[in-house]
Simulated scan of single mutants.
Amino acid sequence: MSKKCQITGKKPMSGHNVSHANNKTKRRFLPNMRTVRVTLPDGTRKKIKVSAKGLRILKKKNFELS
């Protein structure tokens, strides 16, 4: 299952968990993904995976979401 936004292109990034003793362990920061149905301008409906920011962009561009 892909964790990449089809609108913004956001992907998981890596970093560290840092303890109080400054021990560092690897971790992943995952984007906030949602699966939504979008009505395209030609009238067809398609399921796409978008991040929360991608949803805001779609709403701003007045795409039909359901």
Rank of each mutant, 00 (worst) to 15 (best):
C5I: 04
Q6H: 10
Q6T: 10
Q6F: 08
I7W: 00
I7F: 05
I7V: 15
T8R: 07
G9C: 00
G9T: 00
G9A: 01
G9V: 01
K11R: 13
K11Q: 08
P12R: 10
P12F: 06
P12D: 08
S14T: 15
S14I: 11
S14F: 05
S14M: 11
G15A: 14
G15K: 13
G15D: 12
G15R: 13
H16N: 15
H16R: 08
N17R: 08
N17F: 00
V18D: 01
V18G: 06
S19P: 08
S19H: 05
H20V: 07
H20R: 03
H20F: 05
H20P: 00
A21D: 14
A21L: 05
A21G: 04
A21E: 15
A21K: 12
A21R: 04
N22Y: 02
N23W: 05
N23D: 14
K24N: 07
K24H: 10
K26S: 09
K26W: 03
K26A: 10
K26M: 09
R27D: 08
R27A: 05
R27V: 01
R28F: 04
F29S: 13
L30I: 03
P31T: 04
N32L: 08
N32F: 09
N32D: 14
N32Q: 09
M33W: 00
M33N: 06
M33R: 02
R34S: 06
R34L: 05
R34N: 04
V36T: 05
V36W: 00
V36Y: 05
R37W: 13
V38F: 06
V38Y: 04
V38A: 04
T39D: 04
T39P: 02
L40F: 08
L40Q: 15
L40C: 15
L40I: 12
P41T: 11
P41C: 07
P41E: 14
P41M: 10
D42T: 08
G43E: 08
G43S: 10
G43M: 06
G43T: 12
T44S: 13
T44Q: 12
T44E: 13
R45M: 15
K46C: 13
K47R: 14
I48F: 12
I48C: 09
K49R: 15
K49S: 13
K49C: 11
K49G: 11
V50K: 03
V50P: 02
S51F: 00
S51R: 03
A52T: 04
K53W: 01
K53Q: 11
G54M: 01
G54F: 03
L55E: 00
L55W: 00
L55K: 02
I57W: 02
I57L: 09
I57S: 01
I57A: 02
K59Q: 15
K60G: 13
K60I: 11
K60A: 15
K60F: 09
K60C: 10
K60P: 06
K61C: 07
K61T: 11
K61A: 12
K61S: 09
K61R: 14
K61N: 13
